[in-house]
């Protein structure tokens, strides 16, 4: 790359064309220590020269070095593969029940990846197969609720923070009202309204009650960014609301929202399991860890393993997402370390 400030004089270069218009004035300025010196251009390390370094680029470089991120990302990847193709890991049918042979049969720990590896539940069904097939409901709920609340809450927070005034007052009061509703009580009332409860009814209920947290984070973030000079500069250029919001404010305000959303994802998975456990979330024949934990609870004295495996799967999943969220937060905001 040619370095224009260091090569031969260029008559187009204003730095080399400094012509005082008024010698008296130049002298005056010179007295004040304003002698012209060549500005040294900061030339980045030649090896990294063309690497565009941005916040996300820095965060990614930082993340790749974190063991918590690597472990949680691998775990989540595995869980997603299991959720999409549970048949890859087992031949057993999670709905096949043989009560006479397999009622609460103890796990056979030598039977790796076999139907009896984790034992059988109170209906004589393979717990291993059910743990694998149950991942789909949990992961779907977790990801879909997170996407829904990020979009909904993000939009509400953005509008509220950007426009301020009475728009902000109205949206903030609505957020306050939703904040006052206990999640489980609200979900109980909402889910009772559905005659058939599927994964999607749980997603709708949790998203409906959960968007406020993201909206608050987004609102605060937008208010901070809105006041920065580059947004004022955009306005001075004549940029419209849409451009200011999506080109200038959103990219600079979204980091804390992503962090909170990633951490909250684990919470939504727990909430689904809790609702299913209480009997107001998913129901048989839908396979979900929450449903299995609920049915295992009745036979806990005879067969603790029937409770242990779905509960362990749930805990590991939630832990993986929370660890990922923590790692992302640390990478995006080094001040929090």
């Amino acid at each position: 790359m040619p370095e224009r400030n260091e090569d031969i004089p260029d008559h187009n270069d204003p730095l080399r064309n400094i012509q005082p218009t008024d010698s008296d004035h130049l002298d005056y300025v010179g007295q004040q220590g304003l002698a012209v010196e060549q500005e040294t251009l900061i030339e980045p390390d030649p090896v990294k020269r063309e690497q565009a370094r941005s916040l996300w680029g820095d965060a990614w470089r930082d993340l790749r070095k974190r063991p918590t991120f690597i472990i949680s990302a691998l775990l989540i990847l595995l869980l997603i593969v299991i959720a999409i193709w549970p048949g890859l890991f087992t031949n057993a049918d999670p709905r096949a029940a043989n009560l006479t042979q397999d009622y609460l049969r103890k796990p056979d720990y030598t039977d790796f990846f076999g139907a009896g590896w984790f034992g059988y539940d109170g209906q004589g069904r393979s717990i291993y197969a059910r743990v694998l097939y149950g991942a789909r409901a949990s992961i779907t709920v977790g990801i879909c609720v997170t996407l829904a609340v990020t979009v909904l809450g993000g939009l509400a927070g953005m509008v509220s923070g950007y426009f301020g005034g009475w728009t902000d007052s109205v949206i903030s009061r609505i957020i306050d009202i939703f904040f006052g509703i206990p999640l489980l009580l609200g979900a109980l009332v909402l889910l009772n309204a559905f005659s058939v409860r599927t994964v999607w009814s749980v997603v709708i209920a949790l998203a409906f009650l959960g968007w406020t947290q993201l909206a608050r984070v987004m609102r605060g973030s937008v208010i901070t960014v809105k006041q920065s000079d580059y947004v004022v500069a955009g306005r001075a250029l004549g940029a419209g609301t849409g451009r200011l919001m999506f080109r200038h404010i959103l990219p600079n305000a979204v980091a804390p929202v992503i962090v909170v959303a990633t951490i909250a994802l684990g919470g939504y998975i727990t909430a689904e399991a809790t609702l299913s456990f209480l009997g107001i979330g998913l129901q048989d024949p839908t396979i979900s860890w929450g449903v299995d934990i609920s049915s295992a609870q009745k036979v806990i004295r005879q067969a603790p393993f029937a409770l242990f495996f779905p509960a362990a799967a749930l805990s590991v999943t939630v832990l993986a997402f929370i660890m990922l969220g923590d790692a992302v937060r640390d990478a995006l905001d080094p001040k929090l370390r």
Binding site: A52, S54, L55, S228, D229, Y230, V232, A233, G234, A236, L237, G238, A239, G240, R243, R247, H248, P251, N252
Partner: peptide, 30 residues
């Protein structure tokens, strides 16, 4: 288009998420 501004703080008046080309090219997009 006819009245423009140069800001005080060069560290906060440029959007950190945009390249120089995008920053200087933005007036043309608007």
């Amino acid at each position: 288009r006819n009245i423009q501004m140069v800001f005080q703080d060069p560290y906060t008046s440029l959007n950190p998420r945009m390249t120089v080309g995008d920053i200087i090219g933005e007036p043309f997009e608007i």
